[in-house]
């Protein structure tokens, strides 16, 4: 179903889309995962314009999801917008890097009604702000959270759990190593 022709006579293929994006938005080298899936990186300043262009010009009207990947070793967040064309049955994943030191990006809430939910979640889980997005400061899944955003790579889930939930009064531990050492084989140096 990929490589289809849409109304207007324009052939929609990953190659054509990539050439258009590099000419207009300085896109980087594409990662052609499959015939119907391509990842492309664009500068952050061009991201919203590129998404709008894909939506309005090429018919990528479905925002499948919008999330981020924490590239902590490069001090970057990689914003990841997955766009789908129903006519061509192609997914184009647009990616844009922003600095972890200043995690602010342009909002796309005006393009899709569901986009503001993704941005609200990204604000809570990664600490990425989207100025102008409605309700972006409201809690998404967490309430009363005062740690660093939990989906960041430097948030240590185990350390947080041990700090927050253990030890708890009245809670007995049944660690098998302790039982072996203290009850079953006290004479053996385990």
């Amino acid at each position: 179903m990929s490589n289809a022709t849409i109304a207007g006579g324009r052939e929609v293929t990953p190659e054509v889309i990539y050439e258009d994006l590099i000419a207009r938005f300085k896109a980087g080298s594409p990662d052609r995962r499959r015939d119907d899936l391509m990842f492309i990186t664009v500068p952050q300043a061009e991201a919203v314009a590129a998404i709008t262009h894909l939506k309005e010009h090429w018919g990528f009207r479905h925002l499948a999801f919008f999330t981020a990947v924490d590239l902590i070793e490069r001090n970057l967040f990689r914003l990841t917008y997955m766009l789908h064309s129903y006519e061509a049955s192609i997914d184009v994943c647009l990616q844009a890097d922003i600095s972890r030191d200043a995690p602010i990006a342009d909002t796309i809430h005006h393009l899709w009604a569901g986009a503001s939910t993704y941005e609200r979640e990204l604000k809570e889980m990664f600490g990425i702000d989207f100025p102008g997005c409605p309700r972006v400061d409201e809690p998404f899944a967490l309430e009363g959270w005062d740690e660093i955003p939990p989906m960041r790579r430097d948030f240590d889930t185990r350390a947080y759990s041990e700090r927050t939930f253990f030890p708890r009064d009245g809670r007995e531990k049944h660690d098998k190593v302790d039982i072996m050492k203290n009850e079953l084989y006290p004479e053996v140096d385990l």
Binding site: R33, F39, A64, T67, M82, C93
Partner: peptide
Amino acid sequence: GQTWHRAECTRGEYGYMLV
């Protein structure tokens, strides 16, 4: 690498992206 797969569940589009 990174990839994305989708399927039609009872409620609609269900998908996974793996990096």
